[in-house]
Computed example of a mutant assay.
Amino acid sequence: MPTPRTLLALPVSLTLLCLSAAASQAHPAPDTNALVRLLVARGGAPAAALLAHDSTGVGTAPTGTDHPRTGTDDAQAESDYALGTTEYTQAGTGIGRADHFRVGSITKTFIATVILQLAAEHRLSLSDTVEQHLPGLVHGAGNDGRALTLRSLLTHTSGLYDFTAVTGGTVPVTPTQAVRMAITHPPADRGRFSYSNTNYVLLGLVIRQVTGNSYATEAERRIIAPLRLTGTSFPGSRTTLPSPHGRAYAADGSDVTDLDPRVAGAAGELVTTLADLDRFYSALLGGQLLPPHWLREMLDTRTAHGSYGMGLFPVKLPCGTTVWGHNGRISGSYVRTAATVDGRHVLTFRVNTGEIADPGLEPALLAAEFCPRTS
């Protein structure tokens, strides 16, 4: 099973998953303001920003019902979120609090949520094979859609080759082209965690097959509109960002703000804002989008041997707190969201380039935000 450090070596222009291990610290973590400044001073980013929201202790805990919260419960959740404390920090120039930006692999949490909603509606089963929904598509070089389940796609245990290893995350492709690139390569061992963007491209196709609508349409209807995520969109082939937005830079300093999102598709297309990401993860983990059974399925990491749930992964911090979330890397942008398991305390930070030169800064930021301060 790849280590977090190994995963950092995945193609830097697109994904998307960097499972940063929480390093043990002998001294109290610096505060988040100082660490955001270090993302620029030591991390090599032109600019960085962080938005954290904490509603711990406000209102009541989520109920144990078998359905997502609706009606007055939703109103209570909105009130709880509004009553929490919010902290915004930025460093460098070229980033604004309300900016739209690309989030890369954080898109996967949205896709996984839609799939699990469809499972809750009995429109598909996680034990369904890929062949049942996409007959004949996954076949060749030892790949066999009859042997792969939707669960294996969600948890990255299908063994499918990552198409971005071919494209470098810089070539726009259709979903079918992405899959065909992947299946010319033999698979990794099935059942072993092996992160691959191809898995979520296939899940995007499954959503269309089951609903008759694109993954973007379903996510907008089921997540973006109900949560009023007004800064969040699936741009399709639109290369420009909505206003307001800053600039995005490659490692060599070139401007890569304009980008064809089809380099990522369902594996990393999304555009959003700091506030929308905080609200989304807070709502998801707070039980507003999935019934309790299906939220537990999402957080179950046993299939991936502790590395990954379904569109989310856990990180245990030095203080013993476990946070859940995802990160994303796409050309000109690196983003990380993490939250407590109840969604009441959430943090999103971003830099306007695809790399953080000092990999220790991310776990330090998470520890600074979620671990109690010591004197």
Rank of each mutant, 00 (worst) to 15 (best):
L274V: 01
V271K: 08
D276S: 11
A147I: 00
R69Y: 09
L160V: 06
L150Y: 10
P4S: 03
A182D: 11
T93G: 01
S79L: 14
D31A: 00
L39T: 06
S127H: 15
G136L: 01
F280R: 02
G145M: 03
A357M: 06
Q132S: 14
G84F: 03
A368M: 00
P261L: 00
S13V: 06
V201E: 04
R350P: 00
G268R: 06
S194W: 05
L347T: 13
L229T: 08
S152M: 15
L361P: 03
M181L: 15
G159T: 06
A283M: 01
H27R: 14
T129A: 11
N143L: 01
L17P: 00
A275N: 08
L126Q: 10
T240Y: 13
T157V: 07
V263E: 05
T198Q: 08
L289E: 07
A29C: 00
G246M: 11
A47T: 05
V341L: 13
N213C: 05
F280E: 01
G332L: 02
V256L: 10
M310D: 00
G236R: 09
S254V: 08
T184W: 05
L312R: 02
T301V: 13
A45S: 14
T337C: 14
A120P: 05
L39H: 06
R97H: 14
L277Q: 12
L83D: 14
A45K: 07
A368Y: 03
G59K: 06
L259F: 13
Q25L: 12
T167H: 04
A112G: 11
P226Y: 10
S331W: 07
A141D: 10
S243W: 06
V173F: 02
A283Q: 03
L365W: 11
L227N: 01
A41C: 02
I356H: 02
R180A: 09
L118P: 04
R146T: 14
C371F: 11
G96Y: 00
A304K: 01
A112C: 04
T322F: 12
Q209R: 15
D99A: 09
G253P: 10
P186K: 13
H139S: 15
T167A: 01
S333Q: 11
L205C: 09
G265Y: 00
G320N: 04
D80V: 13
L227C: 08
G140T: 10
V341S: 14
A77Q: 07
P175E: 00
R302D: 11
P172F: 09
A219P: 01
S194V: 12
G140P: 02
R221Q: 15
P235Y: 10
L38K: 15
T272M: 04
L365E: 12
P291K: 08
A52C: 02
F280W: 12
A120T: 13
V263I: 15
G320D: 10
Q117V: 11
P68T: 04
K316Q: 14
H305F: 06
L229Y: 08
A21T: 13
E218V: 11
Y281S: 00
E131Y: 05
G354M: 09
G92T: 08
A248W: 01
V36I: 15
A45I: 04
T217F: 07
G140Q: 12
V130Q: 11
D278C: 13
S24M: 13
N327L: 07
L259Q: 06
T273F: 09
K316A: 14
T170R: 14
R97N: 09
